[in-house]
């Protein structure tokens, strides 16, 4: 089929018979689909009076609705963010505070114990090994009597309700302690006390102190003086008294509590590692010690 013929046929027109449209229109109007559309359009135009109070409730809901966006979008996220930041900052601060406190306490503890007790023990032990009963030969290593200036608030630290048993240190009578200065020459006022193994027992009489401003001078047996802060007076006082019961963990006691716990630990270690623990100023203890020495001889 040629191209021109195809175009002719495609473009060809022919008038329909008269009355064709009327027949088609009538058929369309008769179809259920058309009827449905009419019904649908009619239904769509229906009106119904709403309840009397409908507007009041819509108005109230609109007012409520106008308030909500501020809360939901802007305030709440900021509130939660601020709270989270505050908690984080507080947590970090508390952690750092506790950590630095504890570190500082144990650092100071190292400083305090190292110069006084360690050289003392080793020096005395060496001297005793040479001549166990010639105390005079190790005079310059022998501990001096403690001289503590006692203040009322210091004494108040000790716990009157303390029920601790068998934990008393060789104690000095605080009221009888004489006051000396750091510059005074060390003197020997008490015999050396040692345990069954020959180690020198820790004695509170090792301490000689004087208060100058915010510091206490503590003199070691060899005459060397160490200055420590007056804040340790409570701990020094504690050495003369019995231990106290505190909370379950030393971190809960605060700075002084940690020291108290540490001293208590030392005290227990000393007491449990020796068979006999006589007090330097207790006459009965001195007699008992004399008996022991005689027996040893």
């Amino acid at each position: 089929m040629s191209e021109s013929l195809r175009n002719k046929l495609q473009q060809a027109e022919m008038n329909p018979p008269a009355g064709s449209w009327e027949a088609i229109a009538a058929a369309i109007n008769e179809t259920p689909l058309n009827k449905e559309q009419e019904i649908g359009q009619r239904i769509a135009q229906f009106e119904l009076t709403p309840p009397v109070l409908a507007w009041e409730s819509i108005e109230a809901a609109l007012q409520e609705n106008n308030k909500q966006p501020g809360k939901v979008i802007s305030i709440r996220p900021w509130y939660y963010a601020a709270a989270a930041v505050a908690i984080a900052v507080l947590g970090i601060w508390l952690f750092r505070s506790n950590f630095s406190k504890t570190s500082a306490i144990f650092a100071e503890q190292k400083k305090l114990t190292a110069p006084i007790f360690q050289p003392l023990t080793s020096a005395i032990n060496q001297a005793i090994e040479k001549n166990p009963f010639q105390i005079s030969s190790v005079q310059k290593y022998v501990p001096v009597r403690a001289a503590v200036t006692v203040q009322p608030e210091m004494i108040a630290v000790s716990n009157p309700d303390d029920n601790t048993e068998d934990l008393e240190l060789p104690s000095s009578d605080i009221s009888s302690i004489e006051k000396v200065t750091a510059d005074e020459v060390a003197e020997i006022n008490a015999p050396l006390i040692k345990d069954s193994k020959g180690n020198i027992i820790y004695d509170t009489d090792l301490l000689k102190q004087s208060i100058k401003g915010n510091y206490i001078s503590v003199t070691a047996p060899d005459g060397s003086t160490t200055r420590i802060s007056t804040k340790f007076l409570h701990q020094l006082n504690y050495l003369h008294t019995s231990s106290t019961n505190g909370p379950a963990h030393p971190l809960m006691w605060g700075k002084n509590g940690i020291w108290q716990w540490q001293f208590d630990r030392w005290k227990k270690t000393i007491l449990y590692n020796q068979e006999f623990n006589p007090g330097a100023t207790n006459f009965l203890d001195a007699l008992e010690l004399l008996e022991l020495l005689n027996e040893a001889q």
Binding site: Q45, F46, E47, L48, T49, P50, A54, W55, I58, E59, L62
Partner: peptide, 14 residues
């Protein structure tokens, strides 16, 4: 808003 509501409420309620 109320005027608007009154105009369209009957049809919308239907």
């Amino acid at each position: 808003q109320k005027a608007f509501y009154e105009q369209f409420a009957p049809k919308m309620f239907a």
